[in-house]
Amino acid sequence: MKLSEDQLMKIELDRTKCTGIGMCESVAPDFFEIDDDGELVVLRDAVDGAEVADVEAAVLACPTAALRLRP
């Protein structure tokens, strides 16, 4: 199924909460990576339908509730 633009979801990161524990990278490495300073880098923030489940799992796995996935 081809997904249209309006089905894209967007990752939101709250840097005041993130402590770089890295569960998001473990679950969804195409979207998240911890850098050498321990800071989270969101590699891309647009998520299409097929990828939502992975990113949702990453959001749930975050120990500091720093991630959101929004329409």
């Binding site: 770089g20 890295g22 473990s26 490495p29 990576e33 911890i34 850098d35 050498d36 321990g38």
Partner: peptide, 11 residues
């Protein structure tokens, strides 16, 4: 002190 490596090893 190598946080960028950890999850790559986990995978």
């Amino acid at each position: 002190g190598y946080p960028a490596h950890t999850m790559k090893y986990r995978r």
